[in-house]
């Protein structure tokens, strides 16, 4: 028997195993070709928008440049659905060997959820750049309240985490091949229909609800006479954040047993109520649109 084979004598504990596994999953996430492609595209479009702002090609507003805020939601969040789903399902073919591991399904799922902070970190870098850009180019304030602006930009970061969490959720609950791609397509269709539907309806609480009951939304109506949509970005941010929590809790719930499962069940109920409250409060705000 060799000394190398001696397993560490002190039990590392679930937290330590989770930390190591999360690090490994984060590395896999960061090196995933789709994530790398998403980051590259986000960078290209962001730099392009900044250049356009600097040269005056586009209106110097926060929401110029093709709805800047949607970019992290799409390139990190939507693409993250595919990335996280693939990572979650990647060991399904080795499931029989993985099953009797000391690190149980709950730990493995928690590690995957923590790895979703990787696109979140990339989105934070993007957010920081956006604030810096505003300072560099002294963009004049718009008629949109500054707090709403900040909430919308932060929503982009939350979407960058929420998409991957949805990918983990789908990966845990379905073993159907292509479920990640199908989720991506359905999500894209849902956001498109809701955004277009909401903006074409007359301003009302109902139009607010239609355009906000989505995992991410456009806050401006495009074209000539662009306007800032009604509703409350602050409450919408709460709604999105609780959706992230719901996705993580539902993925964990699938793997949990006994007391943990009951605890997660209660968490799901609370988060569900908070999400509903956030959405209703966001839609209940003034539906009037602000011309940009």
């Amino acid at each position: 028997m060799t000394a190398l084979a001696t397993r560490p004598t002190t039990a590392p504990g679930r937290r330590s195993a989770l930390r190591t596994l999360a690090g490994l999953e984060a590395r896999r996430y960061a090196l995933h070709p789709l994530f790398v492609a998403g980051v590259l595209l986000l960078t290209v479009f962001t730099v392009q928008a900044a250049y356009d702002l600097a040269t005056g090609t586009i209106e110097p507003t926060w929401f110029g440049g093709g709805d800047l805020v949607v970019m992290p939601a799409f390139f990190l969040g939507m693409v993250g659905v595919l990335v996280a789903n693939q990572l979650t399902r990647s060991l399904s073919r080795s499931a029989e060997a993985v099953a009797p591991s000391p690190a149980d399904g709950l730990t493995r799922t928690a590690a995957l959820c923590l790895a979703c902070l990787v696109p979140g970190a990339a989105a934070v870098v993007w957010l920081t750049w956006t604030f810096v850009a505003q300072t560099l180019w002294t963009i004049p304030p718009t008629s949109v309240p500054p707090a709403d602006t900040v909430a919308i930009l932060c929503a982009g970061v939350v979407c960058a985490v929420g998409g991957p969490l949805l990918g983990v959720l789908v990966g845990r609950w379905t073993a159907v091949p292509g479920a990640g791609i199908l989720t991506f397509v359905l999500l894209y269709a849902w956001v498109g229909v809701a955004s277009i539907g909401g903006s074409t309806m007359a301003a009302s609480h109902l139009s607010n609800l239609v355009s906000l009951a989505t995992p991410f939304t456009l806050w401006t109506s495009g074209g000539a006479g662009a306007a800032f949509m009604g509703g409350s970005p602050g409450w919408y941010l709460l709604f999105l954040t609780t959706l992230c929590g719901l996705a993580a809790a539902a993925a964990l719930w699938h793997e949990a047993r006994g007391a943990s499962r009951a605890r997660l069940g209660r968490t799901l109920v609370v988060l569900g109520l908070l999400a509903a409250a956030g959405l209703l409060l966001a839609a209940a705000a003034d539906p009037a649109r602000i011309p940009l």
């Binding site: 590392p12 195993a17 930390r19 490994l24 990647s90 073919r93 080795s94 000391p102």
Partner: peptide, 24 residues
Amino acid sequence: EMGFPRTFTGFGFVDYMAVLKEWT
């Protein structure tokens, strides 16, 4: 019967399994 993740190297796969076995 055992399948393997498509993108792993041999070392990467066994290393991942070692982490699951709490070699932290």
